[in-house]
Amino acid sequence: MTDINGEQPLLIAEGVTKWYGRQLGCRNVSLELYEGEVMAVVGESGSGKTTLLQLLSAQMEATSGRVLYRMRDGATRDLATLGEAERRFLARTDWGYVHQDATLGLRMTVSAGANVGERLMAVGWRHYGRIRGAATNWLNRVEIDPARIDHPPRTYSGGMRQRLQIARNLVTQPRLVLMDEPTGGLDVSVQARLLDLLRGLVADLKLSAVVVTHDLAVARLLSHRIMVMKGGEVIETGLTDRVLDDPCQPYTQLLVASILPP
């Protein structure tokens, strides 16, 4: 498990499998993610990408296999052995989860400031002024006008909601962020802005991230490594530019060949 530099992975999946009754979610997925590393999971709809993300974040229990996470104290723990309270604490502090549909990741009727501040209160912040200061700071970082801090996200555009969701997730300085199609459903200029922002934040904060996407351009821009899934299984994995420039598997070649040049 120890890598050449003596570093240990932050997240490990070992032979993770999920069946929904007789329907396969994903089968025998293994991965290791190190600090500061971004992995993209690509594949068509129904290939098991989102299932995998939910297993990695302990939102769902695997049928077999296990997921291990290196806690802040340095101990690597099997997520299945954590108590519910411990798991929830991780989810609220050390992890971020960015949904494709921002309404799932935000509380739509409370203010933007409260959306960001809520995660801070979960880790014990009580001072109103400091919470508001941190929220303002994060709105700035994700390029939302702080004058909108008291407006609820239902008054925001799709791109702003997605940026607010990112601010809400990153305010507690998580070490691991899982993103499910973070740019899906946004028009291209908004996508470009969001990608540029994500790219900067991931590098500045040295985040580890797993990004599920069906957009190979997003994968190329954000990730160091790629995992290609088909029918619930990982069929090809490697360095991002190697998988995209020299794909080996028939399905990966098809994916790469199917991109329309602009």
Binding site: G238, L239, D241, R242, D245, D246, C248
Partner: peptide, 9 residues
């Protein structure tokens, strides 16, 4: 060149 850079297997 790409093999040396690692972008080709």
């Amino acid at each position: 060149l790409k093999m040396i850079f690692g972008s080709y297997r």
